[in-house]
Design a protein around this nucleic acid. Structure first.
Length: 410
DNA sequence: TCTGGGGTCCTAGGACCC
DNA sequence: TCTGGGGTCCTAGGACCC
């Protein structure tokens, strides 16, 4: 029998913003951008949630529901910094910690009783220590499987601790909506509801074979989940393994749909620089470059191309991405979003003739210098020439004329 | 002026190889 | 002249998570 904790930070982004701006505490706060921007809510304070505001909701909708809310931009660097602080606290309680996302983690607490006492005591110690060290509230779920620990931390929110005692898993899960099971989203919920399956107990009653037949491999995992088992899906493998990213991507939604090829390609260049930079940071070479295009009607296509040897060079990524764009964009059709996605890592530097090798080396050296400049002076300090071909940057509230600013000159 | 951005995993079809 | 499988890679799309 193992003991797992699932630790989930409460309204994480909002809480971090409150640390920087204490006057926000207790108020309806929406993190994600201004209410007139294209975008969705990243996080809402509990005061804002009372008005029906929740994450993933369009900002404009949030504004309609709660016009008095304070809308703030997100600060990913701040959240990453606090995520590291959270991790450090968790490591005081177990060597086996896995951050499942920026604001939640699994701990394998098996065998830590002599150090921290029984699970409930350890959880309360952790909870207090978290507040003391980071100033943030969290909720802790305790169970014999990661799946049940995750569901239980959700039930414990906000700012609570909940232990599902071994043996009581089925009784704990039975009355919950199927939607509470991680992996059951809108679509699966609707499919299950259409068959009269609403609660986890309805799911648990069903035959495994039936679920497998109806939902394939997923149905089998679902049958296990209904019984509180980790097998399959996101819960395989040991806690604490970090294998690094499997893909790196950046995308941009224009504040207004555009059919201006210059503007779109300039944005594409910028996205390739961002992807390239992160590939270099991780020491990765991508063999596959994928372009994503979303049109005004929200229809979305992806087009990918794989090459023999990988790259981490901005211009090479851009060549691939631009080629995909030119081949697949219907000229004149207004674009809402464009994205670049890199994947399929390979060891770099092999199988290149001497000329290309030299050129490639030069680029890598130049980019290392560019990365250093960007670290010192900010992301927009240096840009690919192609990125400037659009001659103007997108219009934003900071730059209503859409003109290149001081920061854009290189 | 409804619908972000960064990810993971799964499915399914076609190419290609043995 | 009729018609195997299995395995892997590539591509496109979709569900889901935070």
């Amino acid at each position: 029998m193992r003991t797992y904790f699932h630790v989930d930070m409460d309204a994480f982004f909002v809480s971090v913003e409150e640390l920087y701006e204490p006057s926000l505490v207790g108020k309806p706060v929406v993190v994600g951008g201004r209410p007139d921007e294209r975008g969705v809510v990243s996080a809402a304070s509990y005061a804002a949630r009372k008005f029906g505001v929740h994450s993933a909701m369009p900002l404009r909708t949030a504004y309609k529901l709660c016009p008095q809310a304070i809308f703030v931009d997100g600060h990913p660097e701040r959240y990453r910094e606090y995520s590291h602080k959270v991790f450090d606290v968790l490591r005081e309680f177990s060597p086996l910690v896995e951050m499942a996302s920026i604001d939640e983690a699994y701990l394998d607490m098996t065998g830590t009783e002599r150090l921290h006492g029984p699970p409930l005591r350890a959880a309360h110690l952790l909870h207090g220590r978290m507040k003391q060290a980071t100033g943030l509230n969290c909720s802790v779920g305790i169970a014999s499987s990661r799946l049940v620990a995750k569901i239980s931390s959700d039930q414990a929110k906000p700012n609570g601790v909940l232990w599902v005692v071994p043996g009581s898993e089925a009784a704990f899960l039975a009355p919950l909506d199927v939607r509470k099971v991680p992996g059951v989203g809108k679509v699966t919920e609707a499919n299950l509801n259409a068959r009269g399956i609403r609660k986890v107990e309805d799911l648990a009653r069903l035959d495994e074979g039936f679920l497998e037949q109806k939902f394939g491999k997923w149905g089998l995992a679902l049958a296990g989940k209904a019984r509180g088992l980790d097998a399959g899906g996101w819960f395989d493998g040991e806690i604490g393994e970090d294998e690094g990213p499997k893909s790196i991507s950046h995308e941009h939604t224009f504040s207004r749909d555009t059919a201006d090829a210059g503007q779109i390609e300039a944005t594409l260049a910028r996205l390739c620089e961002m992807v390239g930079r992160r590939l270099r940071e991780h020491g990765l070479h991508a063999r596959t470059v994928q372009l994503k295009l979303r049109y005004s009607d929200f229809s979305t296509i992806t087009r990918a191309h794989s090459v023999e040897r990988g790259t981490q060079v901005d211009t090479e990524l851009f060549e691939e991405a631009r080629e995909l764009f030119r081949r697949n964009w219907k000229a004149g059709r207004a674009v809402r979003l464009i994205g670049v996605h890199a994947s399929s890592w390979v060891e770099g530097g092999e199988q290149m003739d001497l000329l290309n090798e030299a050129r490639h080396e030069k680029w890598e050296q130049a980019l290392a210098a560019v990365d250093r400049l960007r670290t010192r002076f900010g992301e927009s300090a240096v840009s690919l020439a192609a990125g400037m071909k659009g001659k103007f940057r997108e219009r934003t509230h900071e730059n209503p004329a859409g003109l290149p600013g001081k920061k854009d000159r290189s």
